[in-house]
Write a protein that binds this DNA or RNA. Structure first.
Lengths: 223, 223, 223, 223
DNA sequence: ACCATCGGGACCCCCCGTTTCT
DNA sequence: AGAAACGGGGGGTCCCGATGGT
């Protein structure tokens, strides 16, 4: 959330740095409020007020309400690869990397309202006429690559298709976080995701479920 | 759809059978249209027109738009047990019964717009102020019971919690059908659900994935 | 302006007589206010307030603001023939009838806000997306028929085309009333129209400009 | 269009000639676009874009949107006398001069978008809060002077008031061009104006309708 | 009882003409 | 002169009662 780094580097042709600040304010205010109340129940004014600017400012930066939603969603899709890079950098075995990736995404879903907003907006994507990025595919692709590697190392059950397993894993992860959200406001998301990992990801050689790495990743009070 | 039974059990003594017909018309029109366009994008007039009645008629039978959504959802929750009974009647081994149940629900999701509408409405439940039944719990409970039985028969991996497995299964199933819907309009739902079953339900002794029963179910309509 | 007669006989399928009343109220309020301030400067709320109803009522009777304008315009085009009939009934010589017709229309423009509104709306027709009736043509046709008759009676200058003369007459009449409106709020419309008649309509045999009939038509204080 | 002269007489000492160019660009872009779409339907951005400048530039030169409209209108009123001078220079008999004047104005209305814009803006003058020059009066005055001269030469019908005839002529001319605009996009304006002249201007001694001069004028551009 | 007609009021998005910073 | 921000409605839409017909 710091100005440098992940969020809205130098989008568009925003010339003045005040504009960049305003843009980011609006985007994050929107993420906050979309995460909490969804697309339909949020008005432009809500976003503007929450961002501490006026409707006009919002209108200057975004063509319409949908454009804001799209921008939030794109911010999410811009962060995902960064997250993946972070895992890559750990140089783990593929299955451990998979677990680590899912764990980190789960954490982000619990703590980062851009993630929360993006998921919720995608759920409501039919309300948003144009142009949310297609969900799941890049995500599934990410997981599939890791499982392919694992397969080559002979770490999957024989006869298991990495592609199918990736799809199942993504589906289960998505379902688990969704159910956790609906039933308990994502309070239990880490446990539910752990269950998913345990049940679906093959046991890793010499490793317990939940490696030290992924444990380390759990900064917040998971249990 | 018979007057007695699951749907609209003698709703406040509808004397004239025309009223019953009108009620059912509205309900099914609503299911159709909710399934296709969601809650927010549907207006009372849309439902009225699609049902071939006037706004006044709708208003007579339902307090408001949400009440219609709730009624559709309740219709769904009334059908679920019936579906479960159907599986029970087959007298299958618990894991086979689980598979059968999931398969049948997937088929219903593909073919029956009450099911489709209910899932979609639940997805948008935050738009619907009051009173959609809490989702997932009865569902998860159903699966858990079957897995408990399987556990007692020693058909689960040692150390596996039936409850956790039930949650994972439900999550994966939900996620799979959702992704299938978003990406391909549920055209590939059966394959995706099969993948889920294969990856999560333990292999049944001497049984291939997809028993004759569930195969048979893949052809005809649900009931 | 009485309920019976000229205005809004039994439009649409307005079943309840309150509805008919409301419709007429809105229409006349709109005429009033359009006549005074034009299309663009009038809001739906203005009309609703002036009619003593709410926006909802307006929305029930008219699809949008333009539809109101169109209705007012149509009301005008419904009254024109009636006016022409009134002249026909006098059984005057064609040129006298022409004069009488123009005179009566001028009076209506001075006194009747449906006429005023229609003319003004037509002036702003480019603001009104769809469907104002094409102006001038039926009007010109009316005059041309009278001049044709006069021509057959040899009352036009030899070599004069009745059609062209009709066009000129209509143009001059329209121009005169417009200028009178812009410069003097139509206070001097009768004099200006009289000037037009004098200059363009050939002198009638044995008749002075401004026959007794048309004088009689001038109920208000013309001079 | 030359820098000196009719348009933009040293408007508040524009030092830079770039500014002069920009001013003219905006003015003519505005004329174009006002002529085509009227005052209300044109936005500042439309004008700015069409002129190839930014909103800021527009605001530098004009206080607000109305000021642009007023400037266009004034440009028109600055050109009218020049047009009259051109006719004067031909040294025609007064009635011929009248015809010539009307013909040239008609041509300008057909070909020059400053004229078109001005007429249209005047039509919508009620939308333009302050300060459009009062229309018709200087125009009528011009014609009246010519008809006065003709009267003194005994070229009007006895008993005809030159003033009234001027008013009728202006009214008919205005009406004709307006109707031509509304019905046929001014394609037939020359014919319609010719009809007006034929019907209202007394036949000139030894001259046919449409003198060689005005005929000549029908071909080339106005100036 | 059941349903149709009609009217009520509450927003919301969008758009735009304007200033205020650079 | 350009970039950015401002704020005020307008029209449209909708969900829903009141009121009557059948």
């Amino acid at each position: 959330m710091t100005k440098s780094g992940q969020a809205t580097p130098q989008r568009h042709g925003l010339k003045q740095e005040r504009a960049v600040r305003t843009y980011a304010q609006i985007l994050h205010a929107a993420a906050d409020i979309f995460a909490a109340r969804g697309f339909a129940e949020v008005t432009l004014v809500d976003i503007a007020v929450h961002a501490g600017v006026t409707k006009g400012a919002v209108y200057f930066h975004f063509a319409n309400k949908e454009a804001i939603a799209v921008a939030v969603s794109e911010e999410y899709y811009a962060r995902l690869p960064a997250l993946a890079e972070g895992v890559k950098a750990l140089d783990l075995a593929p299955l451990d990397a998979t677990v680590e990736l899912l764990t980190r995404i789960a954490l982000a879903l619990r703590d980062d309202n851009v993630f929360q907003a993006a998921v919720r907006l995608h759920i409501e994507h039919f309300l948003i006429e144009g142009g949310l990025p297609t969900p799941f595919v890049s995500y599934t692709e990410l997981v599939r690559q890791l499982l392919d590697e694992a397969d080559e190392l002979g770490q999957l059950q024989p006869g298991t298709s990495p592609e199918a397993l990736a799809r199942v894993l993504v589906a289960a992860f998505f379902g688990a976080q969704h159910i956790s959200w609906v039933l308990h406001g994502r309070k239990d998301i880490m446990e539910r995701v752990q269950e998913v990992i345990t049940a679906i990801v093959p046991a890793r050689p010499g490793g317990l479920v939940g490696s030290h790495v992924s444990r380390a990743g759990q900064r917040g009070p998971v249990l």
